[in-house]
Design a protein around this nucleic acid. Structure first.
Lengths: 224, 224
DNA sequence: TTGCGGCAACTAGTATACCAGTGCTTGACA
DNA sequence: TGTCAAGCACTGGTATACTAGTTGCCGCAA
């Protein structure tokens, strides 16, 4: 486990959750490895209670498996779940971006444009972390504009399966195409052309395809 | 709180969760009322720990609000959230039923037909509870057929907002139309006509419309 | 009568203690 | 040497104890 500082006014449970998620995504906690509530709580300077609550939450989306009286483990990569995450994302984002064409205000659109401008800036200046953050924010904004925040949160919870595989494929390329995709989407929203926006979103999301067989070969033992 | 027996091999947390959900949906726990971890645990013969874990889970989908150091409360009806639940259901079920046309095996289709047959049986013999159960099962089957079980679970978690309003509108009519809808959907799947199935599902789900203003008048104080 | 200070009674969050299972190790016996 | 059983060391689940923060009430003073 690689730990970072505990934020101020973050409860122990939130901290444990954040740490676990980060370490699962970046593979510091390797798929299949056992997690001990005792070890984790010692490591994070917490008692078992908040750690346990975090583990329960992660087990809800099957990224952690809890075997009563035996132990908990980081779930193996389950391609079915990765597909579910992708499916959910494709379907919901498509619908949301279409809605956004009808609901976005002038301010929303200029906020989106501002976000894309920042993406370009951080791309030029090579800030990959910041870029990823802005990417996520871009998509979240679309849900917020259409008053679908809760939907976003649910989607976010399952997306961890997707993120972990993305990390494995090192497909954090975040190249110029991503940004120009975003740009086109914003302009489609501004033009209020729902069909076009949806089509662009589908094209955008289809860039994230992983070769399951290749990954299985590269990371044997990580898969279910 | 109206309590039922605790199932065998059900953990305290699962029991507490089930009881809370049931009582929230059927309005025995009225929107806005305070929930005390201490009272609840005494009432259910549990300690605070499992009750607390159940409350945390419910607060994730905003059906329970937790105010740190002050108390928890059943959330008021928030029409935004009801709309989010409806949106998510419409979008995902539409996509799933379309997928089912491509993926359903002969066995799946005969299972679906069997489910609908049972619905007809329980309709004739007036078993509204059983009918509701079969209805839910029908929809769940579609997700299972298309290997989208986890998506179903996430959808299910937000649907509680929808269910509570449905209960308020007493729209548990479960009339013949519902069953004939199901029948048509199954046949569209059998015929592998995706477009048709999707259209039918949209028609089916559109039957659940509530008159927000009327409900607000009937249940003042239940709304946010 | 009104305003204000302090205390009592709550809360959620966390820590700790206890219990009932599980599986692995170890050692005795065939 | 192989086998099997007893025990031990772990687990997650639950109960309980403790802490710190909030609210509101009660009584006293102006």
């Amino acid at each position: 486990m690689r730990l970072t500082e505990r934020n101020l006014k973050e409860t122990g449970r939130e901290y444990a959750l954040r740490m676990l998620k980060e370490n699962i995504i970046n593979l510091d906690l390797i798929p299949g490895s056992m997690l001990s509530e005792n070890e984790l709580s010692a490591e994070m300077n917490l008692s078992r209670t908040p750690v346990r609550e975090a583990l329960i939450e992660l087990s809800k989306v099957k990224i952690v498996e809890v075997y009563p009286q035996k132990g908990s483990a980081v779930a193996f990569v389950d391609y079915e779940l990765v597909e579910e995450a992708r499916f959910m994302r494709d379907v919901l984002e498509g619908a949301v971006v279409e809605l956004a064409c009808r609901m976005a205000t002038e301010k929303d659109i200029s906020d989106l444009r501002e976000n894309v401008r920042l993406q370009e800036f951080y791309m030029e200046n090579r800030f990959p972390d910041k870029l990823l953050e802005l990417d996520n924010e871009f998509h979240q904004m679309l849900f917020h504009i259409t008053s679908k925040d809760q939907v976003y949160h649910l989607l976010d919870s399952i997306t961890i399966h997707f993120d972990r595989v993305r990390r494995m494929s090192l497909a954090v390329v975040k190249d110029l195409k991503t940004i120009s995709d975003h740009k086109e989407i914003v302009e489609a929203i501004a033009a209020k052309s729902g069909e076009e926006a949806k089509r662009l979103m589908e094209k955008h999301l289809s860039r994230y395809k992983f070769d399951e067989e290749a990954l299985r070969k590269e990371y044997p033992g990580y898969f279910k």
